[in-house]
Measured scan of single mutants.
Amino acid sequence: VLHDLRQRFPEIPEGVVSQCMLQNNNNLEACCRALSQES
């Protein structure tokens, strides 16, 4: 999931992506929604 998200959101730091995964229990859809608001 992390690799997938890193490719979709290259401009977001890995730490932020990891934190997002923890908050969303590694749910790819939820992470994508959260990160798209972030970027």
Rank of each mutant, 00 (worst) to 15 (best):
V1N: 15
V1G: 09
V1M: 15
L2W: 10
H3W: 09
H3Y: 06
D4E: 15
D4V: 14
L5Q: 04
R6W: 02
R6C: 14
R6H: 12
Q7D: 11
Q7F: 04
Q7L: 10
Q7N: 08
Q7G: 06
Q7W: 00
R8D: 03
R8A: 05
R8K: 13
R8M: 13
F9S: 04
F9N: 04
F9Y: 12
P10W: 00
P10K: 00
P10E: 02
E11N: 10
E11D: 14
E11V: 03
I12H: 09
I12W: 03
P13S: 06
P13D: 08
E14V: 08
G15S: 14
G15H: 15
G15L: 10
G15T: 15
G15D: 15
G15V: 12
V16E: 11
V16H: 07
V17H: 03
V17I: 15
S18G: 06
S18M: 15
Q19C: 10
Q19F: 07
Q19R: 14
C20R: 06
C20A: 15
C20W: 07
M21A: 07
M21I: 10
M21Y: 09
L22A: 15
L22K: 15
L22Q: 13
Q23N: 11
Q23H: 15
Q23M: 11
N24A: 02
N24R: 00
N27K: 03
N27V: 02
N27T: 00
L28P: 07
A30Q: 09
A30R: 07
A30E: 11
A30T: 04
C31T: 08
C31M: 03
C31I: 03
C31K: 05
C31A: 05
C32P: 03
C32L: 08
C32E: 09
R33T: 10
R33A: 13
A34N: 01
A34D: 09
A34C: 07
A34Q: 13
A34V: 10
L35C: 04
L35V: 00
S36Q: 13
S36G: 09
S36T: 10
S36M: 11
S36W: 04
S36Y: 05
S36E: 14
Q37I: 10
Q37V: 10
Q37Y: 07
Q37C: 10
E38W: 15
E38I: 12
E38P: 12
S39Q: 13
S39L: 12
S39G: 12
